[in-house]
Computed example of a mutant assay.
Amino acid sequence: MLLNGQNVVIDVSVTLGENVQIGNNVVIYPGTIIGNNVIIQDNAVIGKQPIRAKASILPDIKALPPTVIGNGVTIGTSAIIYANAEIADDVFIADLATVRERVTIGEKTIIGRGVAVENDCTVGKRCKLETNCYITAYSEIGDYVFIAPCVVTTNDNYMARSKERFDKFKGVTVKNGGRIGANSTILPGKVIYEDGTVAAGSLVSKNVDNESLVLGHPAKEFMKVPENQLLRNQ
Rank of each mutant, 00 (worst) to 15 (best):
G72K: 13
E221C: 09
K48N: 09
C127E: 05
Y29D: 00
N155M: 07
I39K: 10
C133Y: 01
L231Q: 12
F146G: 14
P66L: 03
V198T: 11
A85E: 04
I34Y: 02
Y82F: 13
I135F: 08
M159T: 10
S212W: 10
I61S: 03
P149H: 05
A94V: 02
G76V: 14
D209Y: 01
Q49I: 09
E211K: 09
D143S: 08
A44N: 04
V214G: 03
I22G: 09
V204A: 07
R113P: 07
L203V: 09
C150Q: 14
S162K: 03
A44C: 09
L230D: 02
I57L: 08
I69Y: 11
N36C: 03
G178F: 07
P226V: 00
E130F: 05
G23C: 10
T67N: 05
K168H: 14
P188E: 07
D89C: 00
Q41S: 10
G106C: 10
K163Y: 02
K128T: 10
A94G: 09
Q6G: 11
R179I: 04
I111N: 06
F146D: 15
K62F: 01
L213V: 11
V198A: 06
P149T: 10
G112P: 04
V191I: 15
A137L: 02
N228A: 05
